[in-house]
Design a protein around this nucleic acid. Structure first.
Lengths: 152, 152
DNA sequence: TACGGATCATTGAAAAAGTCAACGATTGTT
DNA sequence: AACAATCGTTGACTTTTTCAATGATCCGTA
């Protein structure tokens, strides 16, 4: 019932040179984060990826499946599965592309937006937990650096 | 032959709220990084993970397989496969644990250290490429923040 | 206009990775 | 000595990833 304590034990091996390898640090933080996020999202029948798709569907940006695949670093066929799932549950729907009739635009339903808002709240709590050792400033800094590394 | 140009096109979807989601940013940077890293390591018959194991085997820390699994966020059975592979190629060997005879300590061979040094050079070049949009300071900052987020 | 090559979503199959329970050997505890 | 727990290992099982092929549609060019 009380807040779960998170063990932040610095492992012996972190001393190794590889403990500063950006690739490894990203992999590790991503791994532990995914675990927490998926746990938090399970209440809503979502996972990290379906949540990402749902979020973008709710964004008003009217993404095509191809854009989703590129942005989320997924194979187009994986996007098909994710959208299929969300669509069957009535959270998003496929609409015909406006300029391109091959493309399908993913938009959220009212129910999708409802679920999304609730899930987002849970996720933010989750993220706060994961980055608890960072100050508010550092948190923002990390976000900014990641974005800059990705998109300049 | 010339240096490969890397397209750093800011995608339309980055504008969405999720474009600041730490989980997604980590996933994306990790995904693109892994791709580059694995490409760079392929010259030496290594991948990100086997390189990590090799690095720790070369570190002098004498990690056990259990420690490797914990540190690399892997299932113990996955470590078995990775070590099997490296051992068959003569890059590492299993030694009996000193205090605990159940445990096996992974140590590098001379050949393992040779390969590791060459691979590391390639990887560092690779990492520099991936984080090219960051200044030297920002690069160090990112590393520090990731480490702090992980281990406080 | 009509052709050819490219791109979109989709399908299905094959390969790779991840998960999990069970095992013998060994350890630490009672 | 007995017992539960931990280590590495194996094998089975599920999930994820990867990839080629397809029909529909788009775009550029003749």
């Amino acid at each position: 019932m009380g807040p779960q304590s998170i063990e932040v034990e610095t492992p012996r091996l972190a001393a190794a040179k590889i403990g500063s390898d950006v690739g490894l640090l990203l992999a590790k933080l991503h791994a532990t984060g995914s675990l927490l996020n998926n746990k938090a999202l399970a209440d809503y029948g979502l996972r990290e990826r379906s949540f990402s798709v749902l979020t973008l569907a709710c964004s008003g940006l009217e993404p095509t499946q191809r854009e989703l695949a590129d942005f989320l670093s997924l194979d187009p066929s994986q996007v098909v599965s994710l959208v299929d799932d969300l669509e069957h549950r009535g959270l998003v729907k496929r609409a015909q592309g406006k300029q391109d009739r091959r493309a399908k635009i993913i938009v959220s339903t009212a129910e999708g937006r409802r679920i999304h808002n609730k899930a987002r709240a849970g996720l933010e709590e989750c993220e706060r937990t994961q980055l608890a050792t960072l100050t508010e400033d550092e948190n923002a800094q990390l976000r900014a650096l990641l974005k800059k590394a990705l998109w300049g």
